[in-house]
Design a binder for these strands. Structure first.
Lengths: 344, 344
DNA sequence: CGACATGTTCAAAGCGGTTTGAGGCGATTC
DNA sequence: GAATCGCCTCAAACCGCTTTGAACATGTCG
């Protein structure tokens, strides 16, 4: 069923039917209802390609997810972010397209996305500290919003990010307040911007309290469970082991907990743990009392905000770039306590 | 840059340029290279909407993810599945579009997807035991492949699934062989087809070995960590607690492990655990020796297979429905051991 | 009663590609 | 030298929609 057939069926011109369906004023009220009913009954829906071609708008947003061959991990955060964004897209009648790109030919990829014309805007995931994609995209002229941000970039661009520095600074200070002096940092890959910022927060807190940073208490890698286990095990085996851990992901924190148990220790009696918690739907940090004390920020909410921001930019092309900084909550769970005297 | 401009730039007709780009034989070799080079240099890419309109093919596959408001969980398996599927799409030049649908107006949704014409085929996720979507989609005439399957459906349709029944039957038998008599099943929602089948496997193994099923040793819910913890804690508090658990997801298994520790027990000394393991990139079950003994089947691989199957069906419309049953491997990890005499 | 709004409908021209059927051109054949 | 044959290239139609500019009733006013 296409417009032509629908029009013929109604003994109307395509013009009139199109106008009736799209809410233009110059259509008789009765005609409009007649058209709408027929469209419903014959379940007609305009062909998106034809509509896009005619209007010049794709009514679709692209999500670009980096997934290199080396560490071909799909960010576990991704599902929830997309779910949040999708809520906004559905409201606005937009579709969502996904492209996983190898970071080798990424520029080429963006250029194609634009040339092919099947998206009106992009959400960029997983920004690195100095991310060449961003200046490139600014030059490309396709509206985009970054989930996260890149450091040291002169030009303004739109992003939605968590205040990672502050979150980790607060968490570190909280541990210091509890009497912990040796605090292990089990971070993500530090060329990723979020991990870099968390590291800065951790460093700043130590410095502010006059504690010397110890490289042996810092790890950085892809945030898996085995990584959390391995890094924490290594640190716990040191001469002066940490009495607390600050972890960048709930999944790694689970590995840290495993390491603590494997070392014959108890959490939080012997070792405290604070983790970042993206509030993922399938990885709830305890239903009522959180298992882990955590810096929490909903990634689903971030998805909603980023999508709304992008849609606004598409609707008002002149609009200047906008930033949205979310503050993580420091929520108290069952994984932190005073530093044990024996281990200070 | 569009075809017209490119053709003008080259002093050729649109036809010739189009043919040159699409590899038709009736183009002079020199002309073709000239065209290809110019396209590259001016980075021309055909507009996907126009191309789609002209050819009648969208060159895109839709993934439909159910996400009801009640249990608005995004399946954690999703990211990896999509990554696998994407590998195939990229090879074949297809795009991927995502739609999260509330299961209320799902049929309406599929109908629109077809009418709008922006996908050539669908991947259906998360089938329930009796899933009305499948007969509906067969009627709709849009090629589709189900990730998983639905029970009790007369008509043939294409699916890719793990042999859940056999996997859980084998796992249960393995536990029985180790001397376990009381085995707790911590399953997903049993109206989901995969969970139903796992339950059948568990039941069959008990029956075959003459063990009476005990409803108190069976739980079924959304597979989160806290659920694993709560269900296992409850079972461990019984008069006759289980000496082993069979768990439907690695995430829930982590909760089960926590419950075991919280009860002052050791895994596997006091309690054994086998879990299903989707081999997710961010949730590796140990780097070398697996932490958990598991029924393992790569969901990323399933994504690849499902995508390839769907593309084949699109390429050859007459092709009969095809099924692909993956066998899960039973991999031995550090979470299983003989049943302790004290607890039999 | 003609002029003029007003409200409603229409035919036709794009949007950017693909594809059909026809035409131009140099080489080969009679 | 004319006819024929390939090989390339072209103009034009078409895909399904939006949108412009014009046409057509109908009613209103001077």
């Amino acid at each position: 069923m296409n417009l032509k057939q629908l029009a013929a069926h109604l003994n109307l011109s395509q013009t009139t039917v199109s106008r009736a369906l799209n809410g233009y004023p110059e259509v008789n009220k009765d005609t409009r209802t007649r058209v709408l009913e027929a469209a419903q009954a014959l379940n007609y829906a305009p062909n998106a390609r034809a509509k896009g071609l005619a209007t010049g708008r794709a009514m679709a947003i692209g999500h670009v997810i980096p997934s290199s061959k080396q560490h071909e991990m799909v960010n576990p955060v991704f599902g929830d972010f997309v779910a949040g964004a999708s809520e906004e897209y559905v409201k606005a009648g937009y579709d969502m397209t996904l492209s996983l790109t190898d970071d080798r030919d990424e520029e080429e990829n963006y250029r194609r996305l634009k040339a092919k014309g099947n998206v009106d805007g992009l959400i960029v995931h997983g920004p690195k500290m100095a991310d060449a994609r961003i200046p490139f995209l600014i030059g490309l002229g396709l509206p985009f919003v970054v989930h996260g941000r890149a450091s040291d970039l002169a030009q303004p661009y739109s992003w939605v990010d968590v205040n990672n520095t502050r979150a980790f600074r607060r968490a570190t200070e909280f541990l210091i307040d509890l009497g912990h002096q040796r605090i292990g940092l089990i971070n993500g890959l530090e060329f990723m911007d979020f991990a870099h910022r968390r590291r800065m927060g951790y460093d700043a807190a130590l410095a502010a309290r006059g504690l010397a940073p110890d490289p042996r208490l810092m790890a950085s890698d892809e945030m898996t469970e085995p990584y959390g286990f391995a890094a924490a095990s290594r640190m716990l085996a040191l001469d002066q082991p940490p009495s607390a851990f600050l972890v960048s992901s709930l999944i790694s924190a689970i590995g840290v907990r495993r390491a603590i148990h494997a070392a014959g220790l108890e959490m939080p009696r012997d070792v405290s743990v604070i983790t970042h918690d993206d509030d993922l739907s399938y990885l709830r940090n305890g239903p009522d009392v959180p298992v882990f004390t955590a810096t929490r920020s909903s990634v689903r909410e971030a998805g909603r905000i980023a999508a709304a921001l992008l849609l606004r930019h598409i609707a008002e092309p002149g609009r200047p770039a906008e930033q949205h900084l979310l503050e993580a909550q420091l929520i108290l769970g069952a994984s932190t306590g005073p530093a044990p005297l024996s281990r200070i």
